[in-house]
């Protein structure tokens, strides 16, 4: 080996008596963040690109009417504002649910979990109503590129909210069964990460899709 080897050697300490101290893998996760929580963060990073692709598709197509009605022509901004507000409030109840579970206050935890799921369900219900009324007004999935892109984007988001509701209800059930305690309240935090992410995505969608007018 030549001198080039030396730098690599420098930070290589002696393995003296102190070396045995760390044996056995009794160290926590290297980053200090639990595996599952880190995995959720990483997954949400991937989700950003998923919604990024869908939002880009809509922005490209939002004025492609094919001679028919555009989604922007039938938007009911006040209605969607209310359902957006409902969804945003569910982030507040999500935080309260986490607070309840991590304090060991099962009653509060369950109540807020249920409230979060209900608010989410109200939002999804509003979306179903919105979709059906759009179809009645002549904007269906295959009407034009704009409508196809609109329904795909908001549909994807609705499915994400629905999956979140399933997770929240699973948490609720396991709390009732006594399996969700302050010791594993991190599960609530992780589901909360997902839930807040879905909310934040909606802020983008609502602003970019609904509020910025198509000219």
């Amino acid at each position: 080996m030549t001198a080039a080897a030396a730098p690599a050697e420098l930070d290589h300490g002696t393995s003296g008596a102190g070396g045995a101290a760390g044996h056995g893998g009794d160290h926590g996760p290297s980053t200090g963040i639990s595996h599952v929580k880190l995995a959720m963060w990483v997954f949400l990073g991937s989700e950003c690109l998923l919604f990024g692709g869908l939002i880009s598709t809509y922005l490209l197509y939002k004025t492609r009417a094919n001679g028919r009605t555009l989604p922007t022509d039938v938007f009911d901004i006040p209605f969607t504002s209310v359902s957006s507000f409902v969804l945003l409030m569910s982030s507040l109840t999500m935080v309260l649910a986490l607070s309840g579970v991590s304090r060991g206050d099962d009653t509060a935890g369950r109540a807020w979990l249920l409230a979060t799921a209900l608010l989410g369900a109200v939002f999804v219900g509003g979306q179903v109503y919105e979709f059906t009324s759009f179809v009645r007004e002549g904007v269906a999935f295959t009407t034009n590129p704009a409508s196809a892109a609109f329904f795909t984007l908001t549909g994807f988001h609705g499915v994400h909210v629905s999956l979140g509701i399933v997770m929240l209800m699973s948490l609720f059930v396991s709390s009732v069964k006594g399996k969700l305690t302050r010791n594993n309240s991190e599960t609530v935090e992780i589901v909360g990460l997902y839930w807040h992410f879905v909310d934040i995505v909606w802020i983008f969608i609502f602003t970019v899709i609904y509020l910025i007018p198509a000219d």
Partner: peptide
């Protein structure tokens, strides 16, 4: 996720007739 979006659009275009890639319908 980017190719997933693309494949999803292609799948919906083929299975359900969504005009994502149909130039005649004004798509790109």
């Amino acid at each position: 996720p980017v190719i997933t979006v693309a494949l999803f659009l292609l799948m919906f275009a083929r299975l359900f007739g969504a005009p994502f890639f149909d130039p005649a319908a004004g798509a790109d």
